[in-house]
Simulated scan of single mutants.
Amino acid sequence: MGMGDADSAAIRMRLIEAEFTTPRRTGDSGRRARSTEPAAPVDLGILAYMQASVDEVVSHTRAAAPDAPPPPATASAVYHWMDQNTAHLDAEKRQAAEVIVYRQALEHALAVGDESVVRRHPCPDCGCWGLFWRASARRAACVNRHCSGEGQAAHTFTLAQLARRHVASRESAVRRAT
């Protein structure tokens, strides 16, 4: 697996953990009505997102390598755990694991507001560098008017599609180099 992808996903997961799961202090800005129930000290949606990401990596690794040792306790460490336990698999299974890790790295970046990660990918249809993130649709869209055609909606792509294409192009470059 591309160690850069596992590192990137782990770093972004640590960033999410540090920024969004630490309790925030709010200054007292004067008098206000007291709530009957205290607010959750962290964003529960982010915790659920992080757990879903970890669960996906663990379940994929367990399916591909049932004899793998237990996963690590920290969320960001599961990517290296997956890498270590899927390194011996055939190319197709390793590539499937790489796609998951790369897609999650993109998702983590978007979760913290970094939409530039989408612009670093060429359009899968026309090859131009005109992709941008449509948060409402949760898809990347090509801005090249020649790609979509006159009067048609822009072509859109899921993060999974971008990840598959990225990993496949990297693998083909490695095969051509050897």
Score class of each variant (00 low, 15 high):
R176K: 11
E98A: 14
H121R: 11
S59M: 04
I100V: 13
S35V: 01
C142K: 01
A10P: 06
Y79V: 06
L110I: 03
L162E: 13
G130V: 01
V101T: 15
E115V: 01
A65Q: 05
T158D: 04
A135L: 09
L15S: 06
V57W: 00
Q161I: 15
G127Q: 07
A111W: 03
P38S: 12
D28P: 06
A73T: 15
H108F: 06
N144D: 15
Q161A: 15
W81M: 01
L110T: 08
A39K: 10
E19M: 04
R175L: 09
T156L: 01
G27Y: 12
G4P: 05
R94W: 08
R120E: 12
A6V: 12
N144I: 14
E37N: 10
I16G: 02
V101N: 01
P41Q: 04
T21D: 00
E56W: 02
T26G: 04
I11R: 11
E115H: 05
F157H: 07
R62T: 13
A64K: 02
P122A: 03
A10W: 05
A154H: 15
R103V: 03
R32N: 13
P71F: 07
R164H: 14
P70I: 08
T86C: 14
P124I: 08
A40Q: 01
R119V: 03
L159R: 01
L110R: 00
A40I: 03
A177C: 09
V174A: 14
E107K: 03
T36R: 11
L162F: 14
Q95R: 12
P71A: 08
E171V: 09
A87H: 04
V101W: 00
V101F: 00
T178R: 15
A18F: 10
D125R: 09
G149L: 11
A154T: 05
Q95D: 08
A97S: 15
S59I: 04
A153V: 04
T26S: 12
H146T: 10
Q152V: 09
A141Y: 11
R34V: 07
L162D: 12
M1D: 02
A154L: 13
A140D: 05
G127W: 07
M50A: 12
R134A: 08
P72T: 05
A40M: 07
Q95C: 06
T61D: 02
C126M: 04
A140Q: 02
S136G: 06
S29M: 14
R134K: 12
T26C: 01
A173Y: 10
C147V: 10
A91P: 03
S35I: 00
D83P: 03
G151M: 07
E92P: 03
V101C: 09
T74Q: 15
R138V: 06
V174L: 13
A6T: 12
V143T: 08
D90G: 14
V57P: 05
T156N: 00
Q51V: 13
A137V: 10
R25D: 02
T36E: 12
A163Y: 05
Q95Y: 04
T158S: 15
A105V: 12
S35D: 03
R134S: 06
H146G: 06
A18L: 13
R134W: 06
P71G: 01
E115I: 04
R120I: 00
E37A: 13
V57R: 04
G2N: 13
P72K: 01
